[in-house]
Amino acid sequence: MVPIAYYLILSAILFSIGVGAFLIKRNIITIFMSIELMLNAVNLSFVAFANYWNQINHQFSGQIFVFFVMVVAAAEAAVGLAIIIALFRARKTLNVDQVDLMKL
């Protein structure tokens, strides 16, 4: 039986990788992927916690949460990729450094 802490640490690492990639990467598709990584890291936490609480008080709403997060992530992907296509058509680039018409 793997202790819950292992799952949580893995989830935290994955989330941090997502945050790091979001801040460092310059391609919009890659940035979008890092957001998906963050969401799935959270899913891992939810499942781990749900398993933990299921043993204590048979309360595992965390698992239900995961399904909804997946649905929302899919909806976000649909909209996000559509926006990315609109951006590419208008600007012919997917590099965030060149998407800078508006600045402080």
Binding site: G80, A86, R89, A90
Partner: peptide
């Protein structure tokens, strides 16, 4: 337009 998709992508990300 040039600006509107840019604003949407910033908002979205």
């Amino acid at each position: 337009t040039a600006k509107s998709p840019e604003s949407a992508i910033k908002y979205f990300l």
